[in-house]
């Protein structure tokens, strides 16, 4: 990862390099991070100033101004077609939350039932294998046809995109429960319910949470595209709208914002994941 200290210390004839090598690794990492950031921004600024890019592309300073503008009043409301980015974000988060929770409610118990029965898991596998690689957006017209509402369709698309990872990981978790745990339950004549509640469920919980984590990341990816199509509100719709206004600066602000929120969502579930990991 870090430049091998033995190699760099050999040619520390210059004092700057010698000093650099003495710094702790974390300081060097942070330093390099800012160096990349600054060089990147400078190159961007230079490219725009020299007219190497399309006229549409904003300068970093314009993006900063857009960020101050957009994030300065995130919750303004001036009619149903003109409101702040905060409302759009909340709308997207609400759709993701609803679709994700619905998917979990369906997929965890279903995955459990499938996982317990070997016949059932083998029978269901072709369906899962076929549907898993389909982009959830392909389901969007079906959602519109069946639900006849853009709001319902957005939630439906999130539901579809979330369901496969949760289902697959739950089935895997149940099926990979250690044989010894099940043997103990058998020698204790544990009832089916006791075995499910106290052995299979806790044993597969880490895998279930991993499935939830993957699903949530995918849902957050998919919601942007879905909202560009269903419209009305949401951060995806907002981006599309700004594109129609040829306003790339606020789109770049959105990209960073979406990335940060995705990061926070993932960290939340990875914290849960760490908490329930068992060491035997």
């Amino acid at each position: 990862m870090y430049s091998s200290t033995s190699a760099s210390s050999k040619k520390t004839s210059r004092p700057f390099q010698a000093k650099l090598a003495q710094l702790p690794g974390s300081v060097r990492t942070i330093g390099l991070f800012f160096a990349i950031l600054i060089v990147g921004l400078a190159a961007w600024q230079l490219a725009v100033d020299q007219g190497w890019l399309m006229k549409l592309v904003p300068r970093p300073s314009q993006v900063w101004a857009a960020a101050v503008d957009v994030l300065g009043s995130p919750f303004y409301y001036a009619g149903s077609n003109d409101f702040g980015i905060g409302f759009h974000l909340l709308a997207s988060l609400e759709r993701v939350a609803l679709g994700f929770v619905l998917a979990a409610i369906v997929a965890v118990p279903l995955g459990f039932v499938i996982g317990i029965s070997e016949t059932f898991s083998k029978a269901i596998d072709p369906f899962v294998q076929l549907l898993k690689p389909v982009s959830p957006l392909a389901w969007l017209p079906i959602g519109l046809a069946v639900l006849k509402s853009s709001e319902g369709t957005a939630i439906f698309v999130i539901f579809i995109s979330s369901i496969w990872p949760i289902l697959i990981n739950t089935i895997f978790g149940v099926r990979s429960t250690s044989g010894t745990y099940l043997k103990i339950a058998r020698t204790l004549e544990a009832s089916r319910w006791m075995t499910i509640r106290h052995v299979l469920l806790p044993a597969s919980l880490p895998n279930i949470v991993t499935g939830l984590r993957i699903s949530l990341s995918i849902a957050w990816l998919v919601i942007i595209a879905a909202e560009m199509l269903v419209g009305g509100k949401g951060i995806g719709y907002y981006i599309w709208n700004e594109w129609n206004n040829l306003n790339l600066a606020s789109i770049i602000v959105c990209i960073i914002l979406i990335g940060l929120i995705g990061l926070v969502l993932d960290k939340l579930l990875s914290a849960v994941e760490k908490r329930i990991k068992y060491e035997s």
Binding site: T180, P202, E279, S280
Partner: peptide, 14 residues
């Protein structure tokens, strides 16, 4: 019949 398994076989979540 009470069984004691080789690898202790305790439930790690309990």
């Amino acid at each position: 019949r009470g069984v004691v398994f080789q690898n202790h076989a305790l439930f790690p979540w309990m």
